[in-house]
């Protein structure tokens, strides 16, 4: 797959923000339960994160699915690495793996 221009924008976003989540809606007003679930998991851990609303940017909404070869939104990236969607992040959160993973990546969590 040749490099789509949107991929550069995505790379810049995920490099700029250590914890970045592409969601439907905003962290304050998620527009879908799965997006809300990821926002809640990160908030419960007190991790600072950037939320980008793909509903406001249709090319980005498709571009991020192609970029990660992952067909759904939300998508979580930590330190430029795709971590997963709602299922994987919920599984990681519930087992405590998400907190460990974030700390190992040097992300500050509220105690």
């Amino acid at each position: 797959m040749d490099d789509q221009p949107i991929f550069e924008r995505i790379r810049a976003d995920i490099d700029e923000h250590p914890v970045l989540v592409y969601i439907k809606g905003t962290p304050m007003f998620p527009q879908c339960g799965f997006s809300a679930a990821i926002v809640q998991a990160l908030s419960m851990l007190g991790a600072k994160f950037k939320g980008i609303d793909v509903l406001a940017d249709p090319p980005l909404r498709q571009g991020v699915k192609d970029f990660s070869n992952w067909p759904t939104i939300p998508q979580l990236y930590v330190c430029g690495e795709f971590v997963g969607g709602a299922d994987i992040v919920r599984e990681m959160y519930e087992s405590g793996e998400l907190a460990t993973f974030l700390k190992d990546k040097g992300i500050e969590l509220a105690d």
Binding site: N69, W70, T72, F82, G84, E91
Partner: peptide, 19 residues
């Protein structure tokens, strides 16, 4: 990895996931 396992399922669904 978990991501790869889920991607295998999405590939099996031949584009229907999210559609």
């Amino acid at each position: 990895s978990r991501v790869q396992q889920h991607q295998m399922i999405y590939d099996a669904l031949r584009g229907r996931m999210g559609d």
